[in-house]
Design a protein around this nucleic acid. Structure first.
Length: 985
RNA sequence: GCGAGGGUAGCUAAGUCAGGAAAAAGCGGCGGACUCAAGAUCCGCUCCCGUAGGGGUCCGUGGGUUCAAAUCCCUCCCCUCGCACCA
């Protein structure tokens, strides 16, 4: 049975063929699984991609990609992220560089901890992701119940396996995780150094804080409000004289500049409020607000709990204008939001305008609180700004105009919210403050709001309070509030640090080049970044171990760590001191005690650094990639700054976003099992340029698989019958194909230098397949010259394609030449084979073929004879004149008409010149020169056999002025240069 | 709102930076060859009209510059992503 199976296998993988010269050889069938496994093993056994400093190599090239975060499995989107740098690395290797492409694992922060917690609780959604999406065996689940167990599983079973299956040319000796003691020593060095250099600052920072669990929470921990934003409210400190006590009534607003337009205030009479001591003052706020203020670093001591009604009907004093305003009752006030007391600006807020109208109307309600309706009736909107606008949409009181224009009748009208939003927007961008704003009079709100607010705070009129834009609830069910916490910031807001970062960005090869502006923009926009957390995996802050350095902050210069990671293992952790790393990165003069081992490592660091290209997703531009530039700028000399960054786009799956929780993912392992790694790689690299979004579509991947198999089979035909070793006499068509090959080499190289993997693979594969198709159709393939040509072409293409499909190309190139493609040098264009004229000749034959086919199709005929008429010599002379004079028709005519023979032909010449000018306009000089070289008659005569075969007809070529011409339909005179006349019969 | 990218055939898209025959390539569809058949492969066709290689329309919208605009400039409309302390 076993023997039978072996024979079957042998039959399957090799097919005996009888060759023309009577010898038998074997052709291998394309079996990606078998051949890829073989190459993987070979790479691993020989340590093919382990890169060490080497003085003989042309150049050291260091490419990196952000290390994966193994909080879940690897999907096909990740596969592309890591394959793009691999293709570049392989390209540089063939160019003769010594290339380092390392990888490590980011195991820092909270996501993995959260995931483990959800697993331990056996949450259904979590179990489904693990067992259904990522195929984790049931019995393995307990191994995942610790953070490192979890990480280890996905590293080993997903990422590493996936990367190795894909054939990534990674130096695996250098892998590490960030939750590792030696790495921590490195990060400690980094943060001590930043601290010494004054790049860390202590301060308060708003965080999402669960009031139930009494701890900060991340977006992942939320049940509701994932999209909630922090909003900083201005608190306008109104004053209330409560039986002789001065009490502050802070009213929250997002539009502090409207303080001059306040006519009254609102409070919810039925909600619970408190009188509390806040930082030594007495405040009146909602009960809920008092609790929040305490979280926001205020000392709060509740003295008395009262109903909102307590303040109703009282007057409070506007701290800016000194005016007294009346507090009205209103059920629409939300005591849960901000302070629970709001000021009313009816001239500029449609909400307030409608509320005031309704309050005036409901006299019974006012009287029930002891308020005289006449006092309310007297309240009039106070306009405080004018809106720049050409039309008269808004009158003196914009809120009134908005309400009336939209026909809003009551506060229940849904249009009110929209009107409010529109007006707020309009007033923000086009509102100019009135004259009583002093130094801000006439200014746009947009320009001065922040300054106005700062002035108010300075003058003791305003305070601030943080609030969410929507309700936020923790997974545990607890309310989440904004808390102010002590923290350390990376001072990305320092102007001098920003300047350094700008310099880094300026010196960078940013691909695509519009990303450079995005880096500059991000650098300008960044504020201080809180770089520590209360909990999570990773490195503790060296001088305060209750804090841990957060993930984006422990991954800014780790590329340097790759250069020495494998050799650091030999050094005991406790010896990795500040001095050690100072010596390593800054040299012997920088340390008090110089460690020779550090000096030794310094050489390797020096050898590889800087990073030549970092490949990364476009979502990291606004954080990681910019931090990367800040930190390199600060910590290292200019020579070590990042040399280039290539941005990568996002992946879709059948037009939809991938989502592991919905199971809408393709795992690389499954795709590779089905199609083979070369197909997966080729699809990922060829379907879009790296920075463009791409779409994994099964039908397209299947088609790539077919294309590669066809390529393999054709290659096998050539390998089994390679033709002569010495170059035989070549025909024009052979020289044409070889000339096309040189164009292809040039195109692919140019594209690869720009990391344009799509253009490169498109040119090397599909575009050249077109040329081959024409070649096969055009000539006899069993000529020795054709065999030699096809073999030469195959060898060059295998090298061009080696970065993309390394398994197949290595195998074929080795079969053909004895050397794997990756060990062969990158092809260079060979002048000897470049021939513009031959390419043009062939273009003419192609056109003639198309024209004949066109005529046959349109006339639905089946000609016996095809007659081709080449333009007469005088027409060629005119063409020459056109080439010499460009598109100046007047000049051409002037010159042509000098010739009496031509003058005789009159209008015919005029028409011809017009045609030829149209034809040559915009053509480059080289092409035109080559056209002058071209012998049309000879070209068509050479192609006559081919045309005869194509159309199963006799083919005769005449010159237009041939005395022996056969021209039954009087066509010959229609010929113009490069556009022969045709007659079918 | 701010910042970035985009709108070209039934679909994915190239062409735009450096203006000069619009539509490369792939997918899908149609027809043919091969085959008992299917698949694979190979050859055509795939915006509209056409019994001679032609003509017409056309690059989100509307203008402008130019001998010439998908391409440069301006207006407007629509789509995607980011706007943070999270990888």
């Amino acid at each position: 049975m076993a023997i039978y199976a072996a024979i079957r296998q042998a039959e399957k993988s090799s097919i005996g063929v009888i060759l023309g010269r009577g010898t038998t050889t074997t052709i291998m069938e394309y079996d990606p699984q078998e051949l890829e496994a073989r190459w993987r093993e070979r790479w691993s056994e020989t340590g093919r991609y382990e890169a060490d400093p080497d003085a003989d190599a042309d150049d050291a090239t260091f490419v990196t990609v952000p290390y994966p975060y193994p909080s879940g499995g690897m999907h096909i989107g990740h596969a592309r992220t890591y394959t793009v740098p691999d293709v570049y690395a392989r390209y540089r290797r063939q160019q003769g560089d010594n290339v380092l492409f390392p990888i490590a694992w980011h195991v820092t922060g909270t996501p993995i901890i959260g995931a483990v917690e959800r697993l331990k609780k056996r949450e259904e959604k979590q179990l489904s992701v693990l067992t259904d999406t990522y195929n984790v065996p049931e019995e393995t689940l307990p191994d995942l119940e610790t953070p490192m167990g979890w990480a280890r599983y996905f590293i080993e079973e997903h990422y590493k396996k996936g990367m190795q299956s894909l054939g990534l040319s990674v130096d695996w000796r250098r892998e590490f995780t960030t939750n590792n003691e030696r790495y921590s020593k490195f990060i400690e060095w980094q943060y001590r150094t930043l601290h010494e250099r004054g790049r860390l600052e202590k301060g308060l920072h708003p965080v999402k804080f669960c009031t139930n669990e009494e701890q900060p929470v991340t977006t992942h921990d939320l049940l509701e409000g994932e999209t909630a934003e922090f909003q900083e409210y201005t608190l306008v400190r109104f004053g209330w004289d409560r039986d002789g006590d001065d009490i502050v009534v802070p009213m929250a607003t997002l539009r502090p500049e409207t303080v001059h337009g306040v006519t009254n205030a609102y409070i919810d009479p039925e909600a619970t409020y408190v009188v509390a001591e806040v930082d030594g003052e007495t405040w009146f706020v909602s009960e809920y607000a008092a609790a929040k203020l305490e979280y926001q670093a205020h000392d709060v001591d509740v003295l008395e709990t009262v109903e909102g009604a307590e303040l109703v009907g009282k007057t409070v004093e506007n701290p800016v204008t000194g005016d007294d305003v009346l507090v009205l009752p209103a059920s629409f006030v939300d005591a849960d939001n901000a302070t629970g007391v709001v000021m009313s600006v009816p001239a500029h807020s449609p909400d307030d305008y409608v509320a005031l109208q309704e309050a005036k109307a409901d006299t019974d309600y006012l009287e029930s609180f002891g308020i005289d309706p006449a006092d309310v009736a007297d309240i009039e909107p106070i306009p405080i700004l004018d809106i720049d606008s050409e039309d008269g949409t808004y009158g003196e009181i914009p809120a009134q105009s908005a309400v009336e224009n939209d026909g809003i009748e009551s506060s229940g009208d849904p249009a009110l919210e929209k009107a409010t939003k529109n007006l707020y927007n309009k007033e923000f961008h086009a509102g100019r403050l009135k004259e009583f704003y002093g130094e801000y009079a006439g200014e746009l709100v947009e320009e001065v709001r922040d300054d106005f607010k700062a002035d108010g705070i300075e003058a003791g009129q305003f305070d601030v309070m943080q609030e969410f834009s929507e309700e936020v609830v923790c997974r545990c069910g607890g309310d989440v509030v904004v808390a102010e916490q002590d923290t350390w910031f990376l001072s990305y807001d320092d102007e001098d640090w920003k300047r350094i970062a700008h310099d880094v960005a300026d010196g960078l090869d940013a691909i695509p080049d519009n990303t450079r502006d995005e880096y500059h923009h991000t650098i300008d926009w960044l504020n201080g970044w809180p770089c520590i957390r209360n909990y999570g995996l990773g490195t503790r802050l060296p001088w305060d171990d209750q804090f841990v350095i957060e993930p984006l902050s422990d991954s800014t210069i780790y590329m340097a760590y790759y250069t020495i990671a494998h050799r650091l293992q030999e050094i005991p952790t406790e010896e990795l001191t500040q001095d050690f790393f100072d010596t390593l990165f800054y040299g012997p003069d920088a340390a008090d005690e110089v460690d020779d081992r550090a000096l030794d490592l310094r050489e390797e660091w020096d050898y590889w650094y800087p990073v030549d290209y970092r490949f990364s997703g476009n979502d990291l531009i606004t954080n990681h990639l910019t931090f990367y530039q800040f930190h390199h700028g600060e910590l290292f000399d200019e020579a070590q700054w990042p040399q280039g960054i290539v941005i990568m786009g996002m992946g879709l799956l059948e037009g939809q976003k991938m989502s592991s929780s919905k199971g809408h993912v393709v795992l690389p392992g499954e795709a590779i099992d089905e199609y083979g790694a070369d197909t997966v790689r080729f699809f990922l690299l060829n379907s879009a340029e790296p920075w463009q979004d791409y779409d994994w579509r099964d039908d397209l991947v299947g088609s790539v698989s077919d294309q590669l198999e066809r390529f393999w089979n054709r290659a096998q035909d050539i390998i089994s019958d390679p033709g002569p070793d010495e170059k035989p006499e070549l025909e024009t068509i052979d020289r044409w194909l070889l000339s096309k090959l040189q164009d292809t080499v040039r195109d692919v190289t140019t594209a690869m230098d720009e990391s344009e993997t799509r253009s490169a693979s498109q040119a090397a594969f599909y575009n050249f397949e077109e040329d081959l198709r024409w070649y096969r159709r055009r000539t006899e393939l069993d000529r020795p010259a054709a065999k030699w040509t096809l073999r030469t072409v195959l060898e060059t293409r295998l090298r061009l394609l080696a970065p993309f499909i390394p398994f197949m190309t290595n195998e074929l190139h080795e079969q053909l030449t004895g050397t794997p493609a990756e060990d062969a040098p990158w092809p260079e264009p060979d002048d000897a084979f470049e021939d513009e004229t031959v390419e043009l000749e062939e273009r003419q034959v192609e056109r003639l073929t198309e024209d004949v086919r066109d005529i046959i199709d349109v006339t639905d005929s089946d000609p016996e004879t095809i007659r081709v008429y080449v333009a007469a010599d005088w027409k060629r002379d005119v063409f020459e004149t056109v080439v010499e004079n460009g598109d100046n028709v007047g000049a051409i005519m002037g010159q042509v008409m000098q010739n009496p023979d031509l003058r005789e032909k009159g209008n015919a010449v005029n028409d011809l010149v017009q045609d030829l000018v149209d034809q040559t306009r915009g053509r480059d000089e080289t092409t035109l020169r080559a056209q002058l070289e071209l012998d049309e008659t000879a070209t068509y005569e050479r192609a006559a056999d081919f045309l005869a075969r194509e159309f199963d007809a006799d083919v005769v070529v005449f010159a237009e002025d041939d005395p022996d011409i056969t021209d039954p339909a009087d066509r010959a005179s229609k010929a113009i240069p490069f556009r022969p006349a045709i007659h079918l019969e």
